[in-house]
Write a protein that binds this DNA or RNA. Structure first.
Lengths: 104, 104
DNA sequence: TTGTTAGTTCGCAAATATATGAACTATGAA
DNA sequence: TTCATAGTTCATATATTTGCGAACTAACAA
């Protein structure tokens, strides 16, 4: 496995943080485990979209999925995900304070 | 500024980590300041692509840019960027160890 | 069975992001 | 001025992601 391949894998996992809905999911789940329905209730929007975001995050190893009866429960695969996410939020806050252009 | 807007801004800044070349840039620059040319030499590829990646990262507040003579120097706007990036790499490594599907 | 609930998958249009050569700009040197 | 170097911007083709309704599946209940 050469460097470029690692960068691709690394970027792929980071992409999981690159969408508002997925950030909101990470923020919502944090250290709980929540069912699809609970997450949907908190976040809103069409269920098909949410399901796709959740399953792409699970495929990338950001979330783990567990089915129990009719419900599917999701949680973060590692607290590190929440930590990295929080740190990036701090970068955002710093930028806003510095009045840097933070949009786009 | 409501929550959804924050999630959008947060996701926008996280998107900066979502591309192999941009991860490589963060990895390369770390705590140095480097000129465009030095970065290009390390990373390769067409200079127009690199320039676009660098300037999108600067626009998002991930990098800062400084021009001196003919050269443009880039550095991380905050060490937090490198930290978050490293943590996400650890998540990747954990997943690889767990034999999780980490591709895609 | 038949129905119901919870969630996933499909299909595909619309939106974004990426790649890259060519043209351009800014700075400094001869 | 004229030239060279360092980097950016433009144009545009291609690829990837997203959004979302409709159809589908799995589990359980009556």
């Amino acid at each position: 496995m050469d460097n470029k391949e690692i960068y691709i894998l690394h970027a792929n996992i980071c992409k999981a943080l690159g969408h508002a809905t997925r950030i909101e999911i990470i923020d919502t789940i944090q250290d709980n485990e929540m069912s699809f329905g609970q997450i949907l209730e908190k976040i809103g929007g069409p269920k098909s979209s949410l399901s796709q975001h959740l399953s792409s995050m699970a495929t990338k190893g950001i979330l783990t999925q567990r089915k129990e009866g009719l419900n599917v429960y999701y949680k973060l695969s590692s607290e590190k995900v929440a930590i990295a996410c929080r740190i990036m939020r701090e970068v955002l806050i710093e930028n806003i304070k510095k009045h840097q252009r933070f949009i786009n």
